[in-house]
Design a binder for these strands. Structure first.
Lengths: 339, 339
DNA sequence: CCTTTGGCTGTTAGCGGTAACATTAGCAGA
DNA sequence: TCTGCTAATGTTACCGCTAACAGCCAAAGG
């Protein structure tokens, strides 16, 4: 038996529940958080009152009082390229059950935006931060470093982490792909990628790639960049441009699977012999590729695993900084000829 | 000239900045929020001290004191299907400059999960909520209804909104597509879609679709469902299954573009005459389609616009509930023959 | 019978800010 | 010179909750 709902305009507080159930606010608080000893009958009474009133606790007040916030900030550059959603999945899966909750911020690859997203998030005093990449503005690094919470930089490990890091070496990934391509006998190799000065990971892959080419006495015969628009379509267009400009290329290395898929569709349309006359490879290992007429060569970026490990680090809050390197596997698919 | 950084382990408060700059906490607060009159020299002194210390305000305390939270909760079923990222884009774009910030929660089409995401979000007392769909558990509806903040249900308008709604009529969308297909002369029509009991919008499209078929004296000759996995690949497999089982179908209506794209690739692989022998259509208008060898017929879901309008409603917090219906346009592409 | 113990509940004092009001100083106009 | 105003700053009282500690009472032990 609880009071009738009072003024429905007034937002409920612990006091309302406490009055409705005839115990102190503290006891209500204890019941709702399952903390401390409360007798079964009291607990029931309180829960019933809370339910009847439709009470939703105010975490703002709770967080301020307890100095604990069950939030984990996740800062990523984009949601639309299939890679970060999977990282998020890994994070969420691991966080479920820890009482922690991810909060996402998107930077669109803009350092300024990243800085303000970080600032905004830190101002909510989260329990930890997961942030893509190792390159941040000095101010961003400083904020993160002195926030006094675990910081996990993900995706990349080629650089100097603030605290923890989980990712792969993009430099090495580029190198490995180049080696595989060269081993397969391709020699006239072109690169097709995004025109994003702040996609450091793509840049590192390209660096590693060129490094390995150089070691074999080769260099890129052509390169093409794009920005914005439908990646699949851009892949087609860029491929057309390269093939027109450099008709003798025999391999196209794409900075991501989506444009690679567009390129593959284009080559097939044109009736080119893939992988005989020309080979292709992308990067990421997005599941989209499974549905293509031919399986594009790629390298998975360990996205799910990265998300899981990063979340685990936050949840366990280890004292010492740790760097976890994951090793992507090369999936040759059907677009690199067998050596 | 400001004091040297004090104990770096101690998290900074207004008091630290106030001491460092020799003014009261209140003045610091005013400076940092750009509110009230503060003389230029004082402002400078404070900003300098705050910067030097690396002070990040505690929004938890601020929110509690001011009873204002600049957060907008956004509850969506999934991030991985290309549709919600675009809605998010619309929301973010509109919110930038209003001082409001979106916070995303993902439900994976699970009502229980939705309920807990809503509860969790409301406990942070956001300024508004944007939530996909009109179907929610009774508890969810109750929580939202009595939260005392603007609630905008998006994507769909076929139902009974809690408060505001912005979206399209999926029933009508299904109907329109069916009418176009029938008008083009197709008669043996099959449906291919997701096996998600909680994807109410896909369900409504199918209902509208069948309704229009019935009006023309037709009914689906086959249907096929899937769940999980690569949508593109599933589209292929389902299409293969349907074509094997019902060799005489002349149209395939897919519940989303991704499986439609898979189906299209399959048909082209098999050398089927599209759209002569067989027509295809999807739903959403994802930009991915632009890169396909042939343009799949589809209907855009007005995703960007929905995001923008929803955000605008929250930002302007109108007194009266409003329902905004948007009207998707049918894009016949190259996979419906011209009547 | 009186203490001790431990289970249960209440009281007090903030958490770090901000609204609202109070105060001060400086200056124009009477 | 004094009043009245305004601009700039300070003071006070919370916001809604929880940590820490303080009571209280029944059962257990001596």
């Amino acid at each position: 038996m609880t009071k009738i709902t009072p003024d429905p305009r007034h937002t409920l507080t612990l006091r309302d529940v406490s009055e409705a159930s005839g115990v102190s606010e503290m006891t209500v608080s204890r019941v709702l958080r399952n903390r401390g000893d409360v007798s079964a009958p009291t607990r029931e009474k309180v829960l019933e009152a809370a339910r009847a009133l439709g009470y939703v606790p105010n975490k703002i007040a709770g967080a301020l009082a307890s100095q604990r916030v069950n939030l984990v900030g996740v800062v990523i550059p984009s949601l639309s390229n299939m890679v970060f959603p999977e990282v998020m999945t890994g994070i969420s899966e691991t966080l479920v059950g820890t009482g922690l909750q991810p909060v996402v911020g998107v930077t669109n690859y803009l350092p300024d935006r990243e800085e303000s997203v970080i600032y905004e998030m830190l101002s909510w005093r989260p329990s930890g931060m997961i942030i893509a990449g190792l390159e941040h503005s000095a101010a961003s690094r400083a904020m993160l470093a002195r926030a006094g919470i675990p910081i996990v930089e993900i995706m990349d490990i080629d650089g100097d982490p603030i605290n923890h890091a989980v990712g792969i070496s993009h430099r090495r990934a580029g190198r490995q792909m180049a080696e595989a391509i060269i081993a397969a006998g391709y020699r006239k190799i072109a690169f097709l990628g995004t025109q994003m000065p702040n996609d450091f990971r793509a840049k590192k892959r390209l660096e590693g790639f060129e490094e390995a080419l150089a070691k074999a006495g080769l260099s890129l015969v052509d390169r093409e960049f794009y920005s914005g628009g439908s990646a699949l379509l851009k892949g087609r267009e860029m491929t057309a441009a390269v093939l027109t400009r450099s008709p003798d290329v025999d391999f196209l290395y794409y900075s991501n699977d989506m444009i690679g898929a567009g390129g593959l569709l284009y080559c097939l349309d044109k009736g080119l012999d893939v992988p005989g006359r020309i080979g292709l490879a992308g990067f990421n290992g997005v599941e989209l590729l499974d549905g293509l007429p031919r399986k594009l060569a790629t390298m998975d970026a360990c996205r799910l695993e990265i998300g899981k490990k990063a979340a685990r680090i936050i949840a366990e809050a280890p004292g010492v900084a740790q760097v976890e390197e994951l090793f992507p596997t090369l999936e040759p698919g059907d677009t690199i000829r067998h050596a």
